[in-house]
């Protein structure tokens, strides 16, 4: 038996053509197959992201002189980005607003996702689609809608005045960090609801019954089973909101007022009015680096926390 199999398999590679061998190599390599599946995306990413990205990296080490670039390598832009108080303050404010926005969005989205995952029996998908309806309209339109709601004579203020609860309109509602947080939270809610919903939906219902069986009331069961098992969704939701909102500049421009401006507004200005592209590029990378560090730290901390509860 063994001898025959050796005889059969041994001469086979010799008789195969180079194309056959290439194909066999392809079939035996999971990594290669994976890259083939990714290749359209990789091509697009390569051209539309990596190349501009590379240009920006190079540019961030240049200096703007009038309308010309001085292409001598310098770290001056980065030094300025770190040292100048206005840049530091704006970056800090961006991080603060984004963090608050992330927490608010996750806190608001979690119950919605929970409700659909555990209490809706039929047409769950319809519910999820309904929750993403705000995304059907343009981003700008939604921001303007919030302007109408939060404005000095907006829906909230006139409503509260009509009820006699306030005499003067609440000025902090619009053109403030609060307005930015509210608008961003609404705009990004769907990005939080979906991953949280999926992670909740994946929880085996018998685990919840087992927890109940072992003496957990609803609250203990939520803290002991549901929340830890939905943490992957919460982590993804947090990152999916935190990372893009730090760099958002439309919302702060339209509803942020002077106190609600964020780092991205400044970066945009560097590429526009101020016309200092190298500085803009350096600020962008400065921001990216900080966001990346915070995100990795966040992932690491949550993972540590998950390990500790076991």
């Amino acid at each position: 038996m063994i001898e025959t199999t050796i005889e059969v398999s041994a001469p086979a590679p010799r008789s195969r053509s180079w194309r056959g061998r290439l194909y066999a190599w392809y079939l035996s390599s999971d990594a290669l197959k994976g890259f083939t599946l990714l290749s359209p995306t990789l091509l697009v990413m390569g051209f539309t992201m990596c190349i501009p990205f590379g240009i920006m990296v190079v540019m961030s080490f240049w200096t703007q002189i009038g309308f010309e670039f001085d292409t001598v390598f310098t770290l001056g832009n980065y030094a300025e980005a770190i040292e100048k108080p206005v840049y530091r303050a704006l970056l800090l404010r961006s991080l603060t607003i984004s963090s608050i926005c992330t927490v608010v969005t996750v806190l608001v989205s979690y119950p919605m996702a929970y409700y659909v995952a555990f209490h809706v029996r039929k047409r769950k998908m319809a519910w999820i689609i309904l929750m993403t309806v705000p995304f059907f309209s343009s981003y700008l339109l939604r921001i303007f809608a919030w302007k109408v709601i939060l404005g000095y004579n907006g829906v909230i203020n006139s409503g509260l005045k009509g009820l006699g609860l306030i005499e003067q309109p609440l000025a902090f509602l619009l053109y403030s960090p609060t307005a930015v947080v509210i608008t961003l939270a609404h705009a990004w809610a769907a990005f939080a609801i979906l991953p949280i919903f999926i992670s909740l939906e994946k929880i085996d219902r018998s685990l919840l019954e087992a927890a109940t069986d072992l003496g957990d009331g609803p609250v203990k069961r939520f803290l002991g089973i549901t929340l830890p098992l939905s943490m992957p969704g919460v982590i993804v939701a947090s990152l999916m909101i935190f990372i893009p909102t730090v760099g958002d500049y439309v919302t702060p421009t339209l509803v942020g007022g002077p106190d609600g401006l964020m780092i991205a507004n400044l970066i945009q200005a560097q590429f526009g009015l101020i016309n200092n592209w190298p500085m803009g590029a350096a600020l962008a990378f400065d921001m990216m680096l900080v966001v990346a560090v915070i995100s990795l730290l966040y992932i690491w901390l949550t993972r540590k926390a998950m390990e500790n509860i076991a």
């Binding site: 085996d204 018998s206 019954e209 109940t212 069961r221 509860i309």
Partner: peptide, 25 residues
């Protein structure tokens, strides 16, 4: 008497072992 106060415990068909906890937990 709600399930979490009953003097019963159950071994589930699929065992329902909590995946985020080790055996001891």
């Amino acid at each position: 008497v709600p399930p979490h106060h009953r003097p019963t415990n159950m071994v589930f068909q699929n065992y329902a072992i909590f995946p985020h906890l080790n055996v001891r937990a």
